[in-house]
Design a protein around this nucleic acid. Structure first.
Lengths: 205, 205
DNA sequence: CGGTAACGTGAGGACGTCGTCAACTTCCGG
DNA sequence: CCGGAAGTTGACGACGTCCTCACGTTACCG
């Protein structure tokens, strides 16, 4: 059953307002600020999005597409390492550009999306990583789950430095990438997180 | 003017309780939980520590000594790179062992200490870094301010993985260290944060 | 155009935390 | 042992956020 016309319009206003508010203040803003910005009452907000997670999901569904696009662009690049770097860099750029997305990344990696797109994104990300490994550019002991480390690392740096020096994360990423090149690799002391573990971490918000 | 005997005892109880509560729940716990754990009223807590920052400072003053100790041990090691690794590793170990300290690191680096010890710690840390650079082991474009990236990165990873896989940060640190070795170095896109910038980031808690 | 289901509204109760203060208690010097 | 300064207490008001719900309004179908 479709929404009534006014309800549909209010829904869009709410999502737009949330997008803006989340972007500049993070995922933990008071929801009545979102409602105010949308020109709608707090009751309507709760009516449409019973939980904060519902609103967050509505705001960031399109991000899965974006990630897919980034991956495709990465895979279209001639050099597998350049492709991998492009992927990581663009991901981080998105975090830097949107405080809400940065919060989301820190807590649950690019989750919160229709499952089919999510699976596709997952598959593409795996291919970006594997291709770079096959080419001997990315270190062989790196697995997709290790991307979480990269995202978490940059996320905190952006949080800390964003107001003072918005480009600082690029330096941090420089160090990180240098540690991921194959020739840099030294034995790691601990095995990678399993998919189940990553799953569990993501669930616990 | 010295504190009265009972006041002194209560102060110690508060600091002990805070140490425990911060360690297991982080720096943002409700203060009345600290008071309860100390067997003291909330009024007494506020009486002795007017702000949360006062209490935090009291709990973590000794950490500056610990850092000094770590640095001295690092400088006593024959191999400058091993010394640097020891320093980083021990710092991260402290973060992993104490959620409150991890929070503190994420916000303001090992601050919150009597100024003299702080300066000494600062000087020693610089020497650990510079010695490793002089030996050609640590990349030449690394500066002390870049340690913030390491601390922030590990801090977030510990936060995310601590409950599920307490040793995961060691793998993350493995990647990080591989990026800091001299042979791994590629040109960085952005200059280091200045001391003033780091200062400013730290002040803003 | 009327009836009704869907929707919108915002005041208000519940909650948790903060920080205060006036009344009470304890310590300690004389 | 006493007086007063130092210290303690916990109930309380302020605050911000969450979420609900009874009532008023609007869109849409026949």
């Amino acid at each position: 059953m479709a929404l009534r016309k006014d309800a549909q319009r209010n829904r869009e206003r709410l999502v737009e307002a949330a997008r803006a508010v989340f972007a500049e203040r993070g995922l933990d803003v008071a929801l009545d600020e979102v409602a105010r910005r949308a020109g709608v009452s707090i009751g309507t907000l709760y009516n449409r999005f019973p939980t904060r997670a519902d609103l967050v999901a509505a705001v960031f569904t399109d991000r899965a597409d974006t990630v897919v696009g980034i991956c495709e662009h990465a895979l279209a690049m001639d050099d597998p390492w350049d492709g991998f770097v492009h992927f990581v860099e663009q991901t981080c750029r998105m975090q830097a550009a949107d405080r809400g997305y940065n919060d989301l990344s820190a807590r649950s990696i690019p989750q919160a999306a229709p499952t089919s797109d999510l699976e596709r994104g997952y598959a593409l990300m795996t291919e970006v990583v594997e291709r770079a490994k096959r080419a001997g550019a990315l270190r062989g002991d790196f697995v997709l789950a290790d991307m979480a480390f990269v995202i978490w690392a940059i996320s905190r740096t952006i949080e800390a430095t964003g107001d003072v020096e918005p480009q600082a994360w690029r330096r941090h990423l420089g160090f990180v990438l240098d540690g991921l090149r194959a020739p840099a690799a030294h034995p790691l002391p601990v095995p990678a997180l399993t998919d189940e573990q990553v799953e569990r971490i993501m669930r616990d918000c």
